[in-house]
Write a protein that binds this DNA or RNA. Structure first.
Length: 391
DNA sequence: GATCCACGGGAATACACGGATG
DNA sequence: CATCCGTGTATTCCCGTGGATC
């Protein structure tokens, strides 16, 4: 046998031993092409969007449901598919046998987690409509809006915009969002997605429909977990009983269920095992705070804030006894090129928005106002792994 | 030169405590 | 006893500046 063959065989064997085959399919923030078990929700959204198949715009709408109910999964998957429909500018090649369908509106998906400023909002819409890229600097917000109006002015069909994560906590308040919608041309229809029930009053006045998405039923969530495990892990790595346990604990929240699956897999992998054990799942469940902030939100934070969190997850509990101490430990890291003041401000801001939590330390009261320690509102090992994977 | 927005930095305010005051 | 006040921290708030990009 030649050396190459020996190496290949070794590679294969080690490959077979690997527990985690694909982190992407385990990640609670990755959305799949075909979400499991949300057929009825797709149907209701398609009912609402039905006019687009005749080349018309649907009315505005609001999609709402609790955390981890699959709103983003469904809407991103749906819009990814709808974007392939023939539009005015991009028509399909007609076959002689098929009746021609009218060009559909364009489709845009905006995530308010990353698209926070007014500038970014209009730029995002414009970007979805044009081939060439839109500048990020050196051009005013008004100019972007002008170009957007110019671009849509000549369009007969218009555009449907999904605006995900409409939520005061995400940083854009409903009143401001309403003003941004008002700045769009008239041949635009939007589909706002949020948790709040009922819909924020500022937007409700402009929507005709609302679509409610419920929590995942128990068995469906088991299926979701099993489906992700089957594409992300070695065969037979996750027993059905453990999937059920994760699903029971997650209580209809797919984000938390997948976060727990990820944490359990990460733990087993670090231990060099190829199957998830009871204790992996137990430890994982223990690590996911409830309620937890979505990892999607954490990973949408500006790079330097994520860097601060990345350092934070590596600190001992003893280095997290006060905000000042935590700040010092983080800003001392060679990887961090921020002033202590900025690190501290980030920590307070992230506590304010619920990414981390400040817990007033009890006991020995010294002089002055008592300090508080920083606790996670997300599973730290999952964040660490996803961050290190470069997402 | 124009523009956006991340950073830095510091002022203003809140809080806890204990001692002073009415 | 209830309230006020001073001190020392913690926390919040605000805005100017400058880097990066076009």
């Amino acid at each position: 046998m030649d050396l190459d063959a020996r190496i290949r065989r070794r590679q294969r064997r080690n490959g077979d031993r690997r527990l985690v085959r694909n982190y992407e399919s385990l990640s609670p923030v990755a959305h799949v092409e075909e979400p499991t078990g949300r057929g009825p929700t797709f149907e209701r959204l398609l009912d609402h969007l039905d006019p687009v198949f005749d080349g018309n715009l649907p009315p505005n709408a609001y999609v709402h449901g609790p955390a981890g109910s699959g709103k983003s999964a469904v809407v991103t998957a749906l819009f990814a598919h709808l974007r392939r429909l023939p539009t005015e500018t991009r028509s399909v090649i007609q076959t002689s046998t098929r009746a021609t369908s009218p060009p559909s509106p364009a489709f845009a998906y905006l995530d308010l987690r990353t698209t926070t400023s007014e500038f970014a909002f209009y730029r995002g819409v414009l970007g979805a409509l044009t081939e060439e890229s839109v500048p990020e600097h050196g051009i005013s917000t008004d100019e972007v809006r002008r170009r957007l109006h110019a671009r849509l002015g000549g369009s007969r069909t218009g555009v449907v915009i999904a605006v995900d994560h409409v939520d005061t906590a995400e940083g854009v308040d409903p009143g401001e969002l309403r003003d941004r919608f008002a700045g769009l041309p008239s041949n635009v229809s939007w589909l706002a997605v949020g948790r709040e029930d009922p819909e924020p009053a500022e937007l409700a006045a402009y929507t005709a429909t609302s679509v409610r998405v419920g929590r995942y039923p128990r068995q469906t969530l088991v299926d979701v977990v099993m489906a992700r495990a089957s594409t992300g892990l070695a065969p037979q790595a996750l027993g059905h009983d453990l999937a059920r346990r994760v699903a029971d604990w997650a209580d209809g929240d797919a984000h938390d269920a997948l976060a727990a699956l990820f944490a359990a897999a990460d733990r087993a992998e670090r231990d060099g095992r190829t199957r998830l054990a009871d204790r992996d799942v137990a430890a994982a469940i223990d690590e996911v705070p409830r309620p937890s902030v979505s990892l999607g939100r954490v990973l949408a934070l500006p790079p330097n804030e994520q860097l601060v969190l990345r350092e934070l997850v590596d600190l001992d509990a003893s280095e997290r006894t006060s905000v000042t101490e935590t700040t010092d430990a983080i800003s001392a890291s060679p990887a961090v090129d921020l002033s202590a003041g900025t690190v501290k401000r980030y920590l307070y801001e992230m506590a304010e928005t619920g990414v981390v939590e400040r817990v007033r330390s009890e006991g020995e009261t010294g002089r002055g106002r008592p300090p508080s320690r920083i606790e996670f509102r997300f599973p730290p090992t999952v964040f660490r792994r996803l961050y290190d994977l470069g997402r």
